[in-house]
Nucleic acid binder design. Sequence first.
DNA 1: CTCAATTTGTTCGTATGTATG
DNA 2: ACATACATACGAACAAATTGA
Lengths: 256, 256
Amino acid sequence: MGKDRRMASSARKATAFQTADSRVPRYLQVASVLRRRIRDAQWAVGDRIATLEELEKEFNVARVTVRQAIELLQSEGLVKSYQGRGTFVTKTVESDRWMQLATDWESLIAPIRDHVPQVLPSEPRPVPRLEEDDGTPAPAYVFLRSIQKRAGKPYAYARVHIAKHLYAKASKQFSSRVALAVLSEIKGAAIARAHQTVVVGAADIEAARHLGISLNSPTAEARCVVSDKDGMVLYIGEITYPGDYVRLNIELIAQD
Amino acid sequence: MGKDRRMASSARKATAFQTADSRVPRYLQVASVLRRRIRDAQWAVGDRIATLEELEKEFNVARVTVRQAIELLQSEGLVKSYQGRGTFVTKTVESDRWMQLATDWESLIAPIRDHVPQVLPSEPRPVPRLEEDDGTPAPAYVFLRSIQKRAGKPYAYARVHIAKHLYAKASKQFSSRVALAVLSEIKGAAIARAHQTVVVGAADIEAARHLGISLNSPTAEARCVVSDKDGMVLYIGEITYPGDYVRLNIELIAQD
DNA sequence: CTCAATTTGTTCGTATGTATG
DNA sequence: ACATACATACGAACAAATTGA
């Protein structure tokens, strides 16, 4: 016995990595760190990566566990191992993976003006979650759900509440275009304020299904609230993005 | 050439959740979804949560697996089960967990002006990563690493490059105060532009250690670049936050 | 060419964790 | 609660290929 095994009883000794035991299989944890090193070009194509022995020590795991991680990368075609020589990077990971999240209204609207969302059957949803600062609710809302795709791959799962009286003005458009884009063009909608909150989250069962990612994998959850001059909330959009697509650029002090 | 043992798992019966198989133990996946529902007050304290049968169906796992998840929550003191009655929420998860990430210079500086970071021994670091849009590099940089804590708990791990000629003007201050705060007060530093990029990432071994989170758990990675009127980069800060602390508020259209 | 060092490949035994039925 | 199957993980020993002295 005596050695540091994988123990479920969290009361047990600190295990590998000296970090909190996440109980994600170790070989997967190691694999994703290695994968990221390749993605970040810390190891470029053609480079020999660290030896099994070095990795064993760095991650404090058994040799077989490192091998398991490397076999995984090999099956992804990222590396190739040669007995007696080492393990070499053969391919790099896709890099243009960013979804730009908007920080002002125009850059929010412009890119999605002509998007065609895939509308999902709308389950009834009791009431939109409103927070203190959001404003006062409209008398009634319509609830829509949709998936946005890019190159056939889903990159956003949207749950949207639209004030019923605005929805009525262009109900057909709302089912074929992105709600915010439609909203921004409705004359009767005097948009006076729009704010967005972004948090790092984890995919729940719905998001995982619709985005084709695994349950609990990191996501960015954006919540966009649009209101009129009286503070009445016209639109609430909750949009979930896969975490590895999201990028936010913020000008803190703009260049002259 | 060994047989691919991993395939055995996907050969297993119904692929739960119909999502990509993340190979995180199912009962843990279920547990975190339930934990989040409690955190989000979807199930408030005192509420009876869904029955085992409902959860079995929702997640498409065996009854014992649901039980395992619920036992975990029970051991965390979040719920309590009663035979014949159901499972009830007994405690909610800490709620004021947000780190406000700044979207303008003043709100970036103000809260950290008086912070005392814990400076780490600075390993040498060859060159700061500069991207196209950042500007031109200064002749030389000083590299610092530090941990920011709040209530004894680390919430940020910072790697910072400061232009050497500025560092020299207040070297002592830089080791006891947050670099950006010092920088903003140095007279010689004519800050003309500051921008920040935030992406959702995953904790590498360093970040995991310093933040006390598990390897590969979600993080927010902020990269802040400050430059002067000639486009010379005075400061590059790479800051890693645990994902569940980060919140970004963005005014898209400001209220009058 | 041989030898030693390095590095990956393979196997055994053991223990524990996960999930089903 | 139990039996079964499989997955994860460790440590250790040994085998095979490669490299350079």
